[in-house]
Design a protein around this nucleic acid. Structure first.
Length: 647
RNA sequence: GCCAGUGUAGCUCAGAGGUAGAGUACUUCCUUGGUAAGGAAGGGGUCAUGGGUUCAAUUCCCAUCACCGGCUCCA
């Protein structure tokens, strides 16, 4: 007999060799029907794997990530089985579970899979699922594994096996399909009730663009049809928040083929919104001792040779700009740091002058690969809310912390709750990717980790994600459909000061090298506005939104009074317009609600006579009648409240 | 850059090898209203661009461009 300990601490005795499924069944038949995988001493394993020693176990159901993971991983095998049946010549790559569903990378050889073929594959999967096929696990030697796949003619699997250690290799067989796999899997396929193959994409074998591109088939499965419907419904809803759609609807920004790919045009309302964001940040920065600077959009090529950017990115940039002078070349600036370094160098700096904080909303241009462009989140011309802090080494951590404070303050004011602080370190196995000494890298990485800890940030560490010149702390957020984007970024840099020969005179009257912090709380105005749109669904905070108030005259007879109301509001810095179209009040309300105008003021005979307005608030309906001044006062109180969130 | 898909009116989208459609927006007229769509008439398209097949191409084929979903990349 062995002792099985449950998450609540209770202990039960079972025969050695008992499976997770048996344990679930001994508790209740319902649980046995719902359980998908089992955690044994922290490791997730198959439900039918025998447990032969005392263990802590946890039974995972659909609501547990581990349960869904096993479910989707098993579904990817089901997909592979169906593919093998329908396309006997297909070669298999890898097929993991992902955050939402699973995929399988396969090589169809000459065949090019189209979406029209997916329903047949889904049907075959469903057919197999209903057969209640079981997953059978088997240990194999490396030699046997290689032999199996060599005979079958699956070169990708052979390559994977080559990298594995003998003695750790397992096969899982499902129906007629056997796969190299670590597991864990469902007991059988009968729980897979709803299947949707969602997308076909190309994906390089092992993520390396020098390798062959395989066909990746994405899918998602559920234990109930209802859950699939809900999922698809949720995706539809998310698409409605897409910033590209809302940006068009609300006339915030546009693109023109004639101007060029990835070069956004800010329309009047979008520009006004962006300007307010910029002014908001400028004010915050001013109070934190930053000074605004302005630098040109181009710089001599040598500037970027000095910075090291030319060697790294020169080939993938907008081509240098030539001038009438032979040999003279300028680059559209891809970042602002070299210009700011030159500002630092305009005069000798004393240790007493530091930290020097130079800020600029700097337009930069990067020739991103065409396939990478995406709405406002990935563009070729954008504006960084950039600043560079030049400080003494002993000031570094303190300065870094202060930047974190600014980022957090901004996120709080704009009600951004859902973000992850990511510490990006260099990849120690690939040091030639980076410039700068190991010593400086170590110092910089330590400073970031300590500062983040000091501010109590919950962080995830990603190795290999650092910039080529230094480690960074990024604030990552998700868009409407769950893609991750980097917004705010803070980066420590020992390299540029060295390359530009930046110095200050210390208290010892000797020359010293300052440390530099690059930082952009928004990241870029473009990306920030995009993510803000998706987070708010276009219902921006009152202080920020382009049109705050619509005055709706009940009929044309009250247009003059409506204009008078609008003027009173504008005198109090409230952005109002009159909807004087010849339409019914119902239609004006509907359309202005759809335009996400926060306040609608209905004015008719009664209001005009009493010098009042009938207030309607977005999403809340009729708020009653009050004088225009009264409304303006309440309105401005609301705005001020939004802008005075304490640190 | 690579793989797959899409491109028809300002917007959202039908359509078919033989004279181009709807809803909405826009213009004009009627209506002058009380909290999410009042009524009528009218204007508006080189069917992304360039080639090819065909008696005939917006429709079929090829190329290019842009957009969309991924991969790679992201100073």
């Amino acid at each position: 007999m062995i002792n099985i300990t449950f998450p609540d601490g209770s202990v039960r005795q079972y025969e050695s060799g008992v499976t997770g499924y048996d344990i679930a069944k001994s508790i209740s038949p319902r649980l046995a029907a719902d359980v998908l995988a089992v955690g044994v001493n922290g490791e997730t394993v198959d439900l039918n794997r025998p447990v032969t020693a005392d263990a802590h176990i946890k039974l995972y159901k659909w609501d547990d990530p581990e349960g869904r993971h096993a479910f989707w991983h098993s579904s990817s095998h089901l997909l592979a089985e169906a593919l093998q049946e329908l396309y006997p010549d297909v070669k298999f790559g890898i097929g993991p579970a992902i955050e939402n569903g699973f995929y399988y990378d396969v090589d169809f050889g000459e065949h090019s899979l189209t979406e029209a073929e997916l329903p047949a594959i889904e049907a075959k999967m469903l057919e197999f699922a209903r057969e209640k096929q079981t997953f059978v696990r088997r240990d194999v030697s490396k030699e046997e594994a290689l032999k199996t796949y060599t005979e079958k003619g699956d070169p990708y699997k052979c390559e994977l096996i080559e990298d594995l250690q003998d003695g750790t290799i397992t096969f899982y067989t499902l129906g007629k399909f056997t796969d190299l796999c670590r597991g864990p899997h469902l007991a059988d396929t009968s729980v897979i009730k709803a299947i949707k193959l969602t997308a076909i994409a190309g994906a390089y074998w092992r993520g390396n663009e020098k390798n062959k591109m395989l066909t990746r088939i994405y899918g998602i499965t559920f234990p109930q049809k209802k859950l699939l419907d809900e999922y698809l419904q949720m995706l539809e809803e998310a698409k409605k928040r897409d910033h590209r759609k809302i940006g068009k609807e609300l006339e915030l920004f546009a693109f023109s083929q004639h101007v060029g790919q990835g070069l956004p045009l800010w329309l009047p309302k979008g520009a006004a919104l962006r300007e307010r964001l910029e002014n908001f940040l400028k004010k915050v920065q001013k109070s934190h001792g930053y000074q605004q600077v302005i630098t040109p959009h181009i710089g001599q090529k040598e500037l970027y040779v000095t910075s090291g950017h030319y060697a790294k990115y020169g080939a993938d940039s907008f081509r240098p700009i030539k001038t009438p002078v032979e040999g003279e070349e300028f680059l559209l600036k891809p970042m602002n740091c070299p210009h700011h370094c030159e500002i630092y160098k305009t005069k000798p700096r004393s240790y007493k002058d530091l930290p020097l904080r130079l800020a600029e909303f700097g337009a930069v241009y990067r020739y991103e690969q065409s396939g990478e462009l995406h709405g406002l989140t990935r563009v070729r011309g954008f504006t960084q809310d950039d600043a560079h802090i030049f400080c003494r080494p002993d000031q570094l951590k303190d300065e870094f912390c202060k930047v974190i404070d600014i980022v957090l303050y901004i996120f709080r004011t704009l009600d951004f709750k859902d973000f992850v602080a990511q510490v990006s370190l260099r990849d120690p196995s690939n040091t030639e990717k980076y410039i700068g000494s190991d010593e400086n890298w170590d110092k910089a990485e330590r400073a970031i980790i300590e500062a983040a800890a000091e501010r109590g940030l919950k962080t995830v560490v990603e190795t290999g994600e650092a910039a080529f010149y230094g480690p960074k702390l990024d604030f990552m957020v998700r868009d409407a459909i769950g893609r991750k984007w980097q917004l705010g970024t803070i980066q420590v840099d020992y390299n540029l000061p060295e390359r530009f020969g930046l110095e200050y005179i210390g208290a010892d009257d000797k020359r010293h090298r300052p440390v530099m912090i690059h930082r952009a709380p928004f990241g870029s105005m473009e990306r920030f506005v995009a993510v803000l749109i998706e987070h708010t669904g276009g219902k921006f905070p009152l202080w920020l939104t382009p049109e705050q108030v619509a005055v709706l005259p009940l009929s044309e007879k009250y247009n003059d009074y409506a204009v008078a109301v609008q003027q009173v509001l504008e005198q109090q810095d409230i952005r109002a317009f009159v909807d004087d179209r010849n339409e019914t009040i119902g239609k004006k309300i509907r359309e202005n609600e759809l335009k996400r105008i926060p306040y609608l003021l209905v004015v008719g005979e009664k209001e005009a006579a009493d010098n009042k307005v009938a207030v309607r608030k977005q999403g809340e309906g009729d708020k009653g009648v009050m004088s225009t001044d009264e409304f303006a006062q309440l309105f401005n109180e609301e705005v001020n409240k939004q802008l005075t969130i304490d640190n």
